[in-house]
């Protein structure tokens, strides 16, 4: 890259100006390049999803030859055997497991942020591991274990597995909120004579409620979209949506793909709406990434 320092002193003003202009142009090109690349990455993220959405309205699940548009793929959803029960099954599994994960995760977050105890770091590490262990291994390990202790692959086994899987998401989000929480507020409340339950209800809970909600949502979504853990522990009588979809993918006939494209589009749409609402009301970015517009909250 060109740098202006150390240039010979006898350069004329015009040369300086030229050089400056060149430099400006390079800067601008690089800047534009950066933005173009960033835009390209967004396209990369979106292209396959957009193609699904497009194909969900197409007559044939192949892009070419293009046979025209239709809504019949969506009409086909209603008569699809097993779809409704898998959606119900996925919703119930996600809800039960997220409730368990949230309860345990919130309690554990208090323990981690408010108390010193032996093996605290170990506790925290193990609380995060379920999120990091590859799904195949968590699924296989729990399958063999459940079978041995007498829990056959089933709805219950899936809820237990997902409650463990969801725990780290709640733990990370809620404990992060509690770390930044001003404990002197609690102390003040107690000094004024409030007992711990009242303090929690009136002071602590309102502040961490959004974090609890975010943790619950994360745990819920993780459960809802999980295929691999459920594959090993759900058994043949429980058929979550992901398994139904996987069946359609691997049994890829044209009719199957048409229905699948429509269902996938509905999933993307539902998430788009939910996310838009969530972002309007809460600091989603803050929970997912960092602290940007944290001030919005209180």
């Amino acid at each position: 890259m060109a740098t202006e320092t150390g240039e010979p002193a006898e350069q004329t003003g015009k040369e300086y100006a030229d050089q400056f202009r060149n430099h400006q142009r390079i800067e601008q090109l690089l800047g534009n390049g950066l933005y173009a690349f960033a835009a390209l990455m967004l396209v990369f993220l979106w292209l396959p999803l957009l193609i699904i959405v497009f194909l969900s309205f197409a007559q044939s699940p192949n892009l070419l030859p293009f046979d025209g548009l239709t809504l019949s793929n969506y009409q086909g959803i209603a008569g699809e055997p097993g779809l409704r029960s898998s959606v119900v099954s996925s919703f119930s599994i996600a809800t039960f497991s997220a409730i368990i994960a949230t309860t345990l995760g919130v309690l554990a977050s208090f323990a981690l942020t408010r108390y010193q105890f032996p093996f605290r770091e170990v506790y925290r590490t193990f609380g995060i591991i379920p999120m990091i262990v590859p799904g195949v291994i968590l699924g296989v390990g729990l399958r063999f274990y459940f079978l041995t202790v007498g829990i056959n692959p089933s709805f219950l086994a899936t809820v237990l597995t997902h409650s463990l899987y969801g725990l780290p998401f709640v733990l990370l989000i809620v404990s992060a909120r509690l770390y930044t929480f001003d404990e002197s507020l609690e102390e003040a409340a107690r000094d004024l004579g409030a007992d711990p339950l009242t303090t929690f209800r009136d002071v602590t809970f309102p502040v961490i409620a959004p974090a609890i909600g975010a943790g619950f949502l994360f745990a819920w979504v993780r459960s809802f979209e999980d295929y691999i853990r459920a594959l090993f522990v759900s058994g043949i009588n429980t058929d979550p949506l992901t398994q139904w979809m996987f069946g359609k993918i691997t049994k890829a006939s044209a009719e199957n793909l048409n229905v699948l494209n429509a269902v996938s589009t509905l999933v993307v749409l539902a998430i788009a709406v939910a996310l838009a609402i969530a972002m309007n009301y809460g600091n989603v970015t803050g929970y997912v990434a960092g602290t940007r517009d944290d001030a919005d909250e209180e």
């Binding site: 999803l49 699940p61 992901t242 699948l260 993307v268």
Partner: peptide
């Protein structure tokens, strides 16, 4: 601008993993 971009990024992020893998099967 950030809000728009983060929305565009988070949507695929929250979309089912399976749907995203499937989308590449079509590609």
């Amino acid at each position: 601008a950030f809000k728009i971009v983060i929305y565009l990024v988070l949507l695929p992020f929250f979309t089912m993993y399976l749907v995203r893998a499937y989308s590449w099967r079509l590609m």
